[in-house]
């Protein structure tokens, strides 16, 4: 009994300690942001590897998710004779939920795992240590630009996902199933609110971008510097950031659309 309690206590303390280190870690990384203003190329290179390289998977997934929404939505709505509302349904599900959430999940798998593996490998090959000894702070030189780039790339990716998804829904709904084009767009425009839906969606995706990138860079920086340690950290990045995104999504949705 005492042993179990002790284990529970030790595990809890471990989690709290890691959380604490994660916060201190990101605090020092953020302190490196002003210096990045003088060296935008560092950030650009990271926007390239987190954003541009995730582009294909985001666009293709967005298109298919939109098309599936179009098909499923049509089949449900047609029973109520409300297939003209297809545009509303597709756009609202994408802009409010699926765009930010699915993009964040894909982003965690594509860019987050790559970030963890890259930083973890730099740690295990003593590159981070080497930088420290060259008086270059790896938190500012390696972590800060990656963190910033993730936070920049994620909302843009989510917007593209939603936009492409709406087009996918349009192709299926209007092109394939014959929903009236005018009704599709006009009902959508009448029901999607710029402040409640679009802006909230952007806020969500920005928050997810911060969380996913934060977890990814921290896991990489904090990993056990062996090949096994790096691979575990990479797995943890995907699992933890996916869970964090879904949990945070609930909280944000409750705050934004809760009333």
């Amino acid at each position: 009994m005492m042993d179990k309690l002790q284990q529970l206590g030790a595990a809890t303390l471990g989690v709290i300690e890691r959380l604490g280190r994660g916060h201190i870690f990101i605090y020092y990384a953020i302190k490196g942001f002003p210096a990045l203003a003088l060296r935008p190329n560092l950030v650009l290179a990271q926007v390239f590897s987190t954003g541009v390289l995730s582009l294909i998977i985001i666009l293709v997934s967005g298109l298919f998710v939109g098309m599936v929404l179009g098909l499923q939505g049509y089949n449900t709505l047609v029973d109520f004779g409300a297939e003209e509302s297809l545009g509303v349904m597709v756009a609202l599900s994408l802009v409010r939920e699926l765009g930010p959430v699915v993009t964040a999940l894909l982003f965690a798998g594509r860019a987050g795992s790559a970030l963890t593996a890259e930083i973890g490998l730099m740690k295990s090959t003593e590159q981070l240590s080497g930088m420290e000894m060259m008086a270059v702070d790896p938190l500012q030189r390696v972590v800060a630009p990656r963190f910033l780039a993730g936070a920049i790339a994620m909302p843009l990716l989510a917007a593209m996902f939603s936009a492409v998804g709406v087009m996918g829904g349009y192709f299926v709904g209007v092109g394939l199933l014959g929903v009236d084009e005018g009704a599709f767009w006009s009902q959508m425009q009448a029901s999607v609110e710029i402040d409640e839906d679009i802006i909230n969606g952007i806020i969500k995706s920005f928050a997810f971008g911060i969380v996913v990138t934060w977890i990814a860079v921290f896991e990489g920086y904090d990993c056990v510097p062996t090949s096994e340690g790096v691979s575990r950290a990479t797995t943890r990045t995907v699992v933890h950031s996916s869970l964090a995104v879904l949990g945070l999504d609930f909280v944000l949705t409750a705050l934004m659309f809760g009333e």
Binding site: A153, L156, L157, A163, V166, Q189, E193, I194, I198
Partner: peptide
């Protein structure tokens, strides 16, 4: 190109999709 695409997407969402 990436940023431009992102802005186009945001523009489309606000102009074409929503009731701006």
């Amino acid at each position: 190109l990436f940023v431009a695409l992102g802005i186009v997407a945001l523009f489309m969402l606000s102009m074409k999709v929503s009731n701006i």
